[in-house]
């Protein structure tokens, strides 16, 4: 015979409230460390950066409130505007090169089937490399002396060695090309995934309907790939706008400032010249430009998704 206590709780049992509270605490405890680290290391410095941009700080010494002085002198300097212009050239030049290459690579990967995975892996190898090491490597490739690889290739076409990196006209395109060499395949990952989402039946149907290969590309592939292309554009824009390591490694902003982007200017002002007040002002300007770009892409992306959904 099983006897059941008439009523009441057995001693040493937790109350429901205690158990529920303990359950809620577990979640907070588990998320807590990640949130704390992210806030401490990513959010607080952002606010401190804004604060510092309003102060005169030089060589780690805070010399007091400066109001908008840092920004005023920054924008009064024509070099700043030139740097912003070069940042835009670098960013959109790299995009103009990387996105079509990535799209071609993604299409090739799809067409090649199983071998496509091998191609994607090969193309991604530079992405696994350090930007500064990539810069070092290309400096050697582009070395304008008879033993350099690039000079030798030119020589087989009967051309004299060219010193691309110390040529004010060619330095920027070269830096862009090296940055794209390292990163375009990353964009190809996302575009390949996007292509994989397009139903194969659509192409069969279009072929039955008599569309040419070109028409199939422009009427099916491009519109259905648009969301992936926008993701790629936004990720690469932010990454190129803030690219500094390749420039440090290849040209150090030269020759004659021809590769001094805003990102490099920040490095120079804040870390080399140690003018941290002004450097933070540049960081704030960069942050705002980043914000504008991100918001712009989110708008574009959001509209696109809304329109299709």
């Amino acid at each position: 015979m099983v006897s059941v206590p008439a009523s009441g709780t057995t001693p040493f049992t937790r109350s429901i409230e205690d158990a529920a509270r303990a359950g809620r605490r577990v979640g907070t405890t588990l998320v807590g460390p990640a949130v704390l680290v992210v806030i401490a290391v990513n959010i607080l410095p952002a606010f401190f950066g804004f604060y510092s941009s309003l102060r005169k700080i030089f060589f780690f010494g805070d010399e007091g409130f400066a109001g908008l002085d840092n920004f005023r002198s920054l924008f009064a300097d024509p070099l700043t505007w030139e740097a912003i212009g070069r940042s835009l050239i670098f960013t959109f030049g790299a995009l103009a090169l990387a996105v079509p290459l990535a799209l071609l690579a993604a299409l090739a990967v799809r067409e090649l089937g199983a071998r496509g995975r091998i191609l994607l892996t090969i193309l991604l190898v530079p992405w696994a490399m350090s930007p500064i090491v990539v810069a070092l490597l290309w400096k050697w490739i582009l070395l304008p002396s008879p033993g350099g690889l690039f000079a030798s290739i030119l020589a087989t076409f009967g051309m004299p060695p060219a010193n691309l990196l110390s040529n004010p006209t060619w330095a920027m395109p070269t830096v862009i090309a090296v940055a794209v060499w390292r990163t375009f395949a990353f964009a190809a990952i996302i575009l390949t995934a996007g292509l994989g989402q397009i139903p194969k039946d659509l192409y069969k149907a279009a072929a039955v309907d008599g569309l040419t290969a070109m028409e199939r590309f422009s009427r099916i592939t491009v519109p259905l790939l648009a969301p992936s292309i926008l993701i790629v554009l936004s990720m690469l824009t932010i990454s190129y706008f803030n690219e500094v390591q390749v420039i440090i490694g290849l040209t150090s902003g030269g020759p004659i400032h021809s590769t001094t982007t805003l990102a490099y200017q920040l490095y120079l002002t804040g870390f080399v010249e140690l003018d941290q007040g002004r450097g933070n002002a540049i960081a704030v300007v960069m942050f705002l430009i980043n914000l504008v770009l991100i918001v712009g892409y989110v708008q574009l992306l959001g509209n696109k998704k809304g329109g299709e959904g």
Binding site: V2, S3, V4, P5, T9, T10, T13, R14, S15, I16, D18, A19, A20, G23
Partner: peptide
Amino acid sequence: LPSQGHIYIGDRDVTT
């Protein structure tokens, strides 16, 4: 976890 009440398995209150 119930919001209220008690659950017994055999004689034992197992609510929590």
